[in-house]
Amino acid sequence: MDPDLVAPVVPWDLVLSEDELVSLASLCDVIIPADQHSPAASALGAHDFINEWVSAPYEGNERDLTLVRGGLAWLNTESHRRFDAPFALLGAGQKAELCDEICYAPRAAPGLEAQARFFDKVRDLTSTAFWTTEEGMADLGFVGNRPMATFEGPPPEVLQRLGLT
């Protein structure tokens, strides 16, 4: 493969539907909500990145498409069954009730293993999407990717914290 590295493009079509993206955006924001330091994940396009990810023509991504679609369908079915509304329109407590059941595989009930894998996949993809944006990097305090005349090593307060002085 010899793509233009200086001006990259995404060469494949995006496959998730409008409805799926609405549910996904809502889940992304449950995973990374807004706070005083930075916006919520969907405000930085996390759901669009996940769409790009699951639409990619590679084996692993194709598997993730099935996982994510199946997981979103389960979330909405369960939302309707319990609360008579789609996931995106649930209240915070209702969303948490569902997510708590699948957010940690070792504690997921039997029968919810796939849903737990789905949740962890979306958590990983959301965190990748979020923290790689300018806003995410600023929130982390990442200070690189700009030229410096010298490299000084860690500042004194870091050395002190590590007991290296």
């Binding site: 940690y104 595989a105 962890d120 958590r123 990983d124 965190s127 990748t128 923290w131 790689t132 995410g136 990097m137 982390l140 305090g141 990442f142 200070v143 690189g144 990717n145």
Partner: peptide, 14 residues
């Protein structure tokens, strides 16, 4: 180290 976050920088926190 505190590197530029890339794909998977926060994966596996479960």
């Amino acid at each position: 180290g505190q590197r530029m976050p890339g794909y998977g920088a926060f994966s596996g926190l479960e």
